[in-house]
């Protein structure tokens, strides 16, 4: 008597299931063709996507067309586009104080500058870090872990750590004091606080993007570098002509992810600055959260309208970037 192998034991139930579903699936394929089969296999995923993404999106849109402070849709009045008109009621969009919802436009402006500065600096620092970590370094794995470690921290922990460092009686001021310098109120000076939010965000997320770029760097064939070396190509030229073009798909992923993440910035900054001083670090997500959930007499309709606008901007930006990426790919093929 032969003993069944482990693989046959494990595969046994799977094969049994396959035998049972084989006949109906063949009939289905005959009836619907290959396209129908694709739809059949995608259906469970689309169902989950529909329930947890599309449906809330539709409900959110419906909320944005209603007014009042009640939460249940049945208790809310239909107000059409009033919430959107309220958000757009403005004499000069560059001067938030001339707008009815000044906090919204302040948040839009802050988010815009945050995205521009944070994403540019993020790509630059992640690229430099990845290039360094890709070299033959002593204790290379240790350094890779060091740069990745902050990514593992909860955003609340990141916010608290930096709050303890930057607050008036924090670690940084203690250090300055030890060196005979005057302490400074880093978190109550508008410009410093904004810079701090960018710095903290870079510290917390850079390791993740550096890892993606590092994976891209390691996928570039070594023989290209060897050929360039044999030709006596200068390192800068190697970087611009070989490394950067071949890294483009990874950089595109990094840009798209970093952009989406920076538009959605909330938790660590909320813990670090609470949106202050004044409204200098009030970003869109915090505005939406406070309008919809945390303010006195909450306004879910206005928050929903703001989130729909934010989502639309994100979709447009992503499509533009994907378009640029596709054009680059096509150019490469030609």
């Amino acid at each position: 008597m032969t003993t069944p192998s482990l693989s046959s034991l494990l595969l046994g139930p799977i094969n049994a299931v396959m035998r049972i579903i084989d006949a109906p699936l063949r009939r289905l394929q005959k009836a619907t063709g290959i396209g129908g089969m694709a739809a059949f296999f995608l259906a469970p995923n689309m169902l989950i996507f529909g329930i947890f993404v599309l449906l809330p999106l539709v409900i959110n849109f419906v909320y944005s067309m209603t007014g009042g402070t009640a939460f249940f849709l049945s208790e809310r009045d239909f107000v059409g586009g009033d919430q959107y008109s309220r958000l757009f009621e403005c004499q000069n969009y560059l001067d938030p104080m001339s707008c009815q919802e000044d906090a919204f436009w302040t948040a839009v402006g802050n988010t815009f500058w945050f995205v521009v500065l944070q994403v540019s600096l993020m790509i630059l620092t992640a690229l430099i870090t990845a290039l360094i970590l890709n070299r033959e370094l002593a204790a290379r794995s240790f350094w890779r872990a060091v740069f990745f470690f902050p990514v593992l921290l909860s955003p609340v922990v990141v916010g608290l750590i930096w709050k303890w460092i930057l607050q008036r009686q924090g670690l940084l001021n203690f250090g300055l004091y030890q060196f005979g310098m005057d302490p400074y109120t880093w978190l109550t000076d508008r410009n410093w606080t904004f810079a701090a939010t960018i710095g903290v965000s870079l510290w917390a997320h850079m390791g993740f993007y550096a890892l993606i770029i590092l994976a891209g760097l390691q996928a570039i064939p070594k023989d290209l570098y060897e050929a360039a070396e044999m030709d006596g190509t200068k390192p800068a030229r190697v970087f611009w002509r070989i490394t950067l073009p071949l890294l483009a798909p990874n950089l595109l992923v990094v840009v798209v992810l970093a952009l989406i993440k920076s538009v959605q910035v909330f938790d660590e900054i909320y813990v670090l600055t609470g949106g202050g001083p004044g409204t200098s670090t009030l970003f869109l997500t915090q505005y939406i959260y406070e309008t919809g959930f945390a303010s006195v007499l909450r306004n879910p309709g206005l928050a929903a309208a703001a989130s729909i606008l934010m989502g639309t901007v994100l979709v447009v930006l992503t499509l533009i970037q994907l378009g640029i990426g596709k054009r680059g790919e096509n150019k490469g093929k030609r």
Binding site: A103, R168, Q169, T185, L187, T188, T273, G274, G275, G276, P277, G278, T279, T281, L282, Q286, E290, A294, S295, V296
Partner: peptide, 22 residues
């Protein structure tokens, strides 16, 4: 002290107790 008043946006509550305690 304006620190406690500028330390957040909106109507967020902040106590200045720690400054007094320190």
């Amino acid at each position: 002290s304006k620190d406690v008043w500028v330390s957040a946006a909106g109507s967020t509550y902040r106590a200045a107790a720690d400054d007094f305690i320190n």
